[in-house]
Amino acid sequence: MSKARATIYGWLLLGPAFVLLAAFTHWPAIATLYHSFHSTARRNRPSVYVGLDNYQGMIDDPVFWQALINNFWYAVGTIPVSIGLALLMALWVNEKLAGRTWLRLAYFTPTVLPMIAVANIWLFFYTPDYGLFDQIRGLFGLRATNWLGEPGTVLGCLIVMTIWKEAGFFMIFYLAALQSMPPNLAEAAAIEGCGRWTFFRRVTFPLLMPTTLFVLVNAVIGAFRMVDHVVALTAGGPNNASMLLLVMIYDVAFRYWDVAYAATLTVVLLAILGTVALIQFVVLEKRIHYR
């Protein structure tokens, strides 16, 4: 085969993947960055270069800060707890116990359920007066609470629901990692007189670190990617108390049609996610043992 022919073959093989990646990933990313430096095109008013005006507008926007702070607390509230729970559940269902298949299935169910169905279930739980939580509280003579309607409780409600949904999903990764661990290690440790906690601390947990990093990165991305539940449950309200960054981007882009501002917010969101992922890799990479 001549060199030119080989080159053509090469490009033809590469082509489909390259076209898809460029059209749906690279081009939109560049376009977003481009739009963030231009004004939104309106009727009779084409898009023009505005420099950092959009970014200035963002910094002056109290809703942006509210969403950022909400998102921060949302991440802090969901990530450690759901990962910790996932690890605990995985350790538990990895033991030899009766009906563990059903237990694993039960833990994984929240992940399988459609997002809107999940939101509906929790909407019922949180309903004032006759919702599940208020009925239980009623048994103890406590008064009804509008869980999703109070700025003080709404973010907490979202956090609890997210933990419920994510922990089972992360558990699967931990369970897979635990099952690929040779049982000989535990036996060797048992002969040395190593207790369960010491074994976990010295052997199991360090060997699970690659999984933890993977789950952590996913959890962080998930925390900033949350939009569907919020739209179904609260639409960011009341008074922006449950407004998260992606919900805000959705609102700005598709309700107010302010494409330039939405692009600006997207760039910031991407920057945040990229930075966090980079920090995670740099900090944790050195302490992780890959098999």
């Binding site: 040779p182 000989n184 290690l185 036996e187 060797a188 048992a190 002969i191 040395e192 007189g193 190593c194 010295r202 052997v203 360090p206 060997l207 043992h289 098999r291």
Partner: peptide, 20 residues
């Protein structure tokens, strides 16, 4: 008695070394 109380050491076929 549990393994640790028996006064034994053991070498496994797969060595059972801690990889990390």
């Amino acid at each position: 008695l549990p393994p640790a109380k028996r006064g034994i050491a053991m070498v496994f076929q797969s060595y059972a070394l801690f990889p990390h």
